[in-house]
């Protein structure tokens, strides 16, 4: 199923082949219909627990049409696409939810070295596991080249 078994998986659809632009637009149309604020973010530190990606533009609150979001996705791809992950997020401001309702990757670096599994021995032969992104061994801006 995977073209590249080291593909970073996070958010929705990340076990599927990359979404086409039409599929991305359909998802955005759904988000707009739900009244979510849609935003575009990018990073070169895709550790699953890194929730703080860079904002590409302001979240779009009064956008009526998916083409508007696609415009930003494409602008972001032009600037960062070669060596960054880009995701589309949809924020639901409904009371009690007030959180990200959708999040999916729309751009990946050409080559993804993936994650290393590190083991740390603890007392009583216990082992702690953690994942570590090979790419982040390099400073920002020099990753995924």
């Amino acid at each position: 199923m995977h073209e590249n078994p080291r593909n970073m998986t996070q958010g929705q659809f990340s076990f599927l082949p990359p979404l086409t632009d039409d599929q991305i637009k359909a998802q955005i149309a759904y988000a707009i219909k739900q009244g979510f604020a849609v935003s575009v973010e990018f990073t070169d530190d895709p550790h699953p627990r890194n929730t703080y990606w860079e904002m590409w533009c302001q979240p779009m609150f009064d956008t009526k049409d998916p083409a508007a979001v696609m415009l930003e996705v494409n602008e972001c791809r032009k600037t960062w696409g070669a060596n960054h992950y880009i995701k589309v997020q949809a924020f639901d401001n409904a009371r009690w939810r007030e959180s990200v309702a959708m999040s999916f990757i729309v751009n990946r670096p050409k080559y993804e070295p993936g994650l290393a599994l590190a083991r740390q021995e603890g007392p009583g032969r216990s082992i702690h596991y953690t994942v570590h992104s090979y790419a982040t061994d390099k400073p920002r801006g020099e990753r995924y080249k």
Binding site: C57, M60, D62, T63, K64, D65, P66, A67, A68, V69, L71, E72, E75
Partner: peptide, 14 residues
């Protein structure tokens, strides 16, 4: 550029 883009985004689909 961001100002123009903001307007264009609002008008998209219309």
């Amino acid at each position: 550029a961001p100002k123009t883009r903001e307007v264009i985004k609002k008008a998209m689909g219309g």
